Computed example of a mutant assay.
Amino acid sequence: MLADVLDALRCPLCAEALTLGGRSLTCPGGHSFDVARQGYANLLPGGARPGTADTPEMVRARDAFLGAGHFAPLAAALAGRLSGAGRILDAGAGTGHYLAAALAPGSTGIALDLSKHAARRAARAHPRIGAVVADLWQDLPLRAASVDAILNVFAPRNAVEYRRVLRPDGALHTVTPSSRHLGPLIAELGLLTVDDRKNERTDDTLAGSFTLASRDTLDLTADLGHAEIATLVGMGPSAHHVPADDLAERIGKLPDPFPVPLSFVLSVYR
């Protein structure tokens, strides 16, 4: 709930503290922001545009695929790494799936995402999650040193802002795909590729604000049916690049089920 994380939030226009009253968040400067009936707050400044926010279809696909447990080992690994963190920021939270799995008794979570459709689901993912619509590339609507850990799964990395809102002894936990992720599906379906320098580019993006503390790879294989493969593609960036009819035709040519490699790089920065 927003009330559980209110002390960490700030006005995106003047950086003052926010007060929750009814269906709005207000600051001493007179700025007001709506709280949707589904429980999330929209803290995009006036005039901000949703840009590349996940569509309703992408959010539904992600909810269905993650809910089926295909990435459960990844969620479990992240929960273990985040054990002991009192307040966790999930930057680019999507449906809140990983954040909900990571919250221990007494801990709270802030789910930030540009998509209001994702925020709706994140607000319901756990009773101690406060969901907020915000742009990760802009100044975050959070106070300095207000979170113990940051979770960033397949999402943009705003190094300067992540360092500002993270407590000095906290850690940034990122998850990126390795070049092995999805394996033969990439060529068979014409999906976006992951280059071999992904880790290096991630480190470069965070350099100056964070130093790499550890890095591990989690490799899995999932036997997926045709419908599950369509859902997997539909929840990621390739959903924007492969026409639906072409995708269905290509998937139809695959064995059913089809073994799909899932490969994740888990990095910790301090």
Rank of each mutant, 00 (worst) to 15 (best):
L2Y: 13
L6P: 14
L6W: 11
D7M: 09
L9S: 10
L9R: 11
L9I: 13
C11K: 12
E16C: 05
E16V: 02
L18T: 09
R23F: 11
S24V: 10
C27Y: 11
G30K: 12
D34T: 13
D34S: 14
V35L: 12
A36H: 13
R37T: 10
G39Y: 14
Y40I: 12
G47W: 07
A48V: 01
P50C: 03
D54R: 13
T55F: 05
E57F: 02
V59T: 12
A61C: 05
A61P: 07
A64V: 04
A64R: 15
F65Y: 09
P73C: 01
L74M: 11
A77S: 15
L78Q: 14
A79H: 05
G84F: 12
D90Y: 02
A93L: 13
T95S: 15
H97D: 08
L103D: 14
L103G: 14
A104H: 15
S107M: 06
L114M: 08
L114C: 05
A118M: 12
A119Y: 00
P127C: 09
R128G: 02
I129V: 13
I129Y: 04
G130K: 01
D139I: 00
L140I: 06
L140D: 00
S146K: 08
V147C: 07
I150A: 03
N152M: 01
N152E: 00
A155C: 06
N158K: 08
A159M: 05
E161F: 14
R163C: 03
P168M: 07
L172G: 02
H173L: 11
R180A: 07
G183S: 03
I186W: 05
I186R: 12
E188P: 00
G190W: 08
L192C: 02
L192E: 06
T193Q: 02
D195G: 09
D196L: 01
R197L: 09
K198Y: 04
D203F: 00
D204I: 00
D204S: 06
R215K: 07
D219Y: 03
T221Y: 01
T221D: 03
L224R: 04
A227C: 04
E228D: 06
L232T: 00
V233I: 10
G234P: 09
M235I: 04
A239C: 11
P243R: 15
A244L: 13
L247I: 08
E249R: 15
R250V: 04
G252V: 08
G252T: 09
L254G: 09
P255N: 10
F258V: 06
P259G: 10
V260H: 03
S263A: 10
V265K: 13
